[in-house]
Amino acid sequence: MAATTFDAFLQEALPGLARYANVLTGDRYAAEDLLQDTLVKAAGAWPRMRQDGNPVAYVKTVMVRTHVSWWRRHRPTRPLTEDIRAQDSGLGTVEDRDQLRRALAAVPPTQRAVLVLTYFDGADDAEIADLLQRRPATIRSLRHRGLQGLRRHLSSTELAGVAASSDHRETS
């Protein structure tokens, strides 16, 4: 059943939104700041969000846009800390994931947002362009540069090989 109040909506959606903020920022503390900034903005639009029928998507849109603009005002954030180190969740070696996270931390925020929207949300270029208020060609360029940045940082021979064979989406 859909939430009827903003508080009820928060109860249901907060864990997912907090996680999304963390994926976007790659930093737990920045994620908490971003989450609050986003919710302060979204709370005022609750009647409209409810009417649209997809408040989670609305809040995510606000969050992505806030993140991109927030970064413009606050960069750089804190230096990389132990927090960034990946836990072993069976998706590869801890070292591989740690390397990937460090590479992701160096990707500029708009490029990272495009990567998240592409590979986490599965959104297509038109959807991302609409959300970030850019042209689809710009989105393709941002993703291309984001992946290139990752490649540069993934310096081990094994990961360089992986990167070279990847990204058919980018070139298609």
Binding site: L14, P15, E32, G92, R97, Y119, S166
Partner: peptide, 29 residues
Amino acid sequence: MTDNLEQRLTAEFRAGDYDIPVDAVAISG
């Protein structure tokens, strides 16, 4: 281990360790 960068990114972003504990009551307040 995944076999290309895109898959690695998808797996990375969906990994469970991006969850952060949040208190809905505190955040709401």
